Each structure stands twice: as structure tokens, then as C-alpha cells.
Computed example of a mutant assay.
Amino acid sequence: MRKLASMEEYEQLKENGKYILMFSAQWCGDCRFIEPFMPEVADKYKEFTFIYVDRDEFIDLCVELDIFGIPSFVAIENGKELGRFVSKDRKTQDEIEEFIAAL
């Protein structure tokens, strides 16, 4: 999983391609819970490029996209939001995969 480096990179990425932005933070316990199985999820859904977005580094982007809980996921294709899985709840591998499969 790639880590978002800058807002400029985000602006370029969102316009071309198929991405799942994963909003997370190092201090987030629920984010640490999903870490072990996220590589398997990314392998299963290769049509998407998974991008790790550090909530603390990109708080303005979180506000812009209404991300109030982490971990959260936003799927984007060629500038259009395909869907989002945004809540304050702990997420399971099955729930994340169901979200992606339904896109």
C-alpha cells in the first residue's frame, strides 16, 4: 500500500485511475487491528490502487471529504467517488471486502 505524500499527489491521483483511499493514523487502535489483513485485501482487489492517507498529516483533506472516523475508506475512479465506508466503528476484513465488492 502506497502512502499519500502531498495534496498535489492527491489532486493528480483522484483524476486518473481507480483508488481506494484508506484514512488512518498511527495512534488509532482500530487502524492497527486491520493492518495485518489489508495486504490480502489489496491483493484480492488489484483493480484498485490502495493509498494510505495519514489523518493527522492530511486533516484538511479529511474535513473536505467528511472523514470523521478512522479507519475509513473512500473509493474514487477518474475523479468520481464510487463509494465510501466511513464510520467510527472497528471494521472487519469481511466488512471491508463486502464494501469493495459492492462498488
Rank of each mutant, 00 (worst) to 15 (best):
R84P: 03
M22S: 04
Y10W: 14
I76M: 15
D60W: 04
E15K: 12
I70Q: 07
R32L: 11
G29D: 10
V86M: 03
F58I: 02
A5N: 11
D54I: 11
D43P: 00
I20F: 08
A5L: 12
D66Y: 10
C31S: 13
E57A: 14
F99P: 08
R2Q: 12
E57S: 14
M22W: 01
D60E: 15
R55G: 12
K88E: 13
E47H: 05
K14Y: 05
D54S: 13
E15F: 01
I96N: 11
C28H: 11
D43I: 00
E64W: 01
A102E: 12
L61R: 08
A102F: 05
K80M: 07
L13K: 03
R32F: 04
Y10A: 02
T92I: 09
L65E: 13
F48N: 06
E81V: 13
K18I: 04
R2G: 00
F99K: 12
F33N: 11
C31P: 03
I34G: 00
Q93D: 06
E15P: 00
P36N: 13
V74P: 06
F68N: 08
L4Q: 09
K46W: 00
A102P: 04
P71V: 06
V53Q: 10
D94S: 12
L4Y: 08
E35N: 10
E81C: 10
I70F: 08
D94F: 05
F37I: 04
R90A: 14
A5P: 01
I34K: 01
L21K: 03
K88Q: 11
L82F: 09
E8N: 14
Q26Y: 07
F33W: 08
A25D: 04
M7C: 04
E9N: 06
G83M: 10
Y45T: 03
T49I: 12
E35R: 14
Q93Y: 05
